[in-house]
Amino acid sequence: MFNKFRSLSKISMNVALVSMTLLLGACGANNSGVNSGAEKSIPDVKETTTVIAKAEEKIETINFAYMPNMGGATPVAIGEAKGFFQDEGIKLNAVKFLSGPPEFQAMAAGDIDIAYIGPGATFLAAKGQGNIIGLVSLGKSDMVFATKKSGIKEWKDLKGKTVGVPKGTSGEMVLNLGLEKAGLNPNDVNIVNMEVAGAVTAYIAGKVDAVAIWSPFTVEIEKQVGKDNMVKLGDNSDFYPEYSFPSSWVVSPKFLKEKPELVEKFMKAITKTTEYKINNIEEAVKLTAAYTGVPEDSLTEELKSIDWIDNTKLVEVFLDGSAVKWYDNLQKQFVKNGKLESAVPSGNFLTIEPAIKSINK
């Protein structure tokens, strides 16, 4: 619970001092017999008390994990530039990550409180390592594409080939769905677990036959090798509507239990960034580019693969059960691929109250 104010007695004393100042000022005006207009410059007691209270408000730090893309970094860039987090009494300590599983590791260690994740890391929330408190977007930015020299033209051609992918990510999910579609399983392919930067480098250098990754990294690869040298096998949209791919805000269960009011304040700031982002998308791109160092044209290209979830839509899908269905279907895929032994009720790790309260206030 925030300790917003000092003791009532201290505020009362301040109010009393202000009141005495008002009284003495009034007496001075009457004694001089001159209407100097001083009463117009006398501070209002209510305003002064509000200023005192604001000054006494405690600023609390949230250690936040973001990714350098439009989903994960834009809220940070906008929130910092427009003061939305500060307005809620939050100092955001933003730390860059490139994929979800390391974020969960950092949460388990107590180094991260809240994080942005793509759909691929949701299996860790299902394992009880995090509570999903909000949705950012539905995406189709995860892609699998092969090098032209590999001779791969469709999913079935991946058999026996080497694919670089950061495991536990949405890129791996799309890869597995594509293999299933072709009647293959992961054991039919030489899947190499790589960090994001390593996967990008390996593809550009021709060290792998294919890669499963997401924008803006896909855009950067295209710049390096040229579109004509890339063979796209598929993306998230190939498996819609059976599978939707939501990106989410996830909070450490310990942090949620200890500081629920602070989590709600975080979501209040996020609702402001969401509204501003959607209504000022060009400025959002510029702010995100300045914050992340990712070129504006790459971020603009990324927008083509994002379906934003605005505040109204968020309330709708949280309350009508749509979000639960999305995560239920993702869990089916996680079970197939061995990420989960069995599915759990998605309501176990969906905590919708902070978002609903922050939007409806």
Rank of each mutant, 00 (worst) to 15 (best):
M1Y: 12
F2N: 06
K4V: 02
R6P: 15
K10G: 05
I11A: 06
M13L: 08
M13P: 00
S19I: 12
L22Q: 06
L23E: 09
L24G: 00
A29V: 13
N31M: 14
N31F: 15
G33L: 00
V34D: 08
N35K: 15
S36I: 14
S36M: 13
S36A: 07
P43K: 13
K46I: 11
T49M: 04
T50V: 11
V51L: 12
I52M: 06
I52Q: 04
A53V: 06
A53I: 05
K54W: 10
K58G: 12
K58V: 13
I59E: 14
E60C: 05
T61A: 09
I62S: 07
I62G: 04
N63H: 11
F64N: 05
A65G: 08
M67C: 12
N69G: 08
P75T: 10
P75L: 08
G79E: 09
E80W: 14
A81E: 12
G83S: 04
Q86L: 10
L92K: 06
A94F: 08
K96E: 15
A106Y: 15
M107R: 09
A121S: 07
T122P: 00
A126V: 12
L135E: 02
L138V: 15
K140H: 10
K140V: 14
A146L: 12
T147I: 15
I152A: 01
K156L: 02
K159I: 05
G160C: 04
G164Y: 06
P166I: 06
K167V: 09
S170C: 05
G171S: 04
M173E: 14
N176P: 01
N176K: 13
L177I: 11
G178H: 15
E180N: 10
L184Q: 00
N185C: 03
P186Q: 11
P186G: 02
N187E: 11
I191R: 09
N193D: 15
A199I: 07
V200M: 02
V200R: 04
A202S: 12
Y203G: 02
I204S: 01
V208T: 09
D209Q: 07
V219L: 01
V219K: 00
I221K: 01
Q224K: 11
V225H: 06
M230C: 03
K232W: 15
G234L: 03
N236A: 09
S237I: 14
D238R: 06
S247H: 14
S248V: 06
S248Y: 03
W249N: 04
P253N: 07
L256P: 01
E258H: 11
K259F: 06
P260C: 02
L262C: 03
E264W: 09
T271R: 12
T271L: 03
T271W: 08
T271C: 04
K277I: 07
N280W: 13
E282L: 04
K286W: 12
T288P: 04
A290N: 14
V294I: 15
P295L: 03
E296S: 06
L299V: 10
T300N: 13
E302M: 02
I306N: 09
D307E: 13
I309H: 04
D310G: 01
N311L: 04
N311V: 01
E316Q: 10
D320H: 05
K325E: 10
W326I: 00
D328V: 00
V335T: 04
V335E: 00
K336P: 02
K336G: 12
G338H: 13
K339L: 10
P345C: 03
G347E: 13
N348K: 14
F349N: 05
F349A: 05
F349T: 11
T351R: 01
K357I: 12
N360M: 14
K361L: 09
K361N: 15
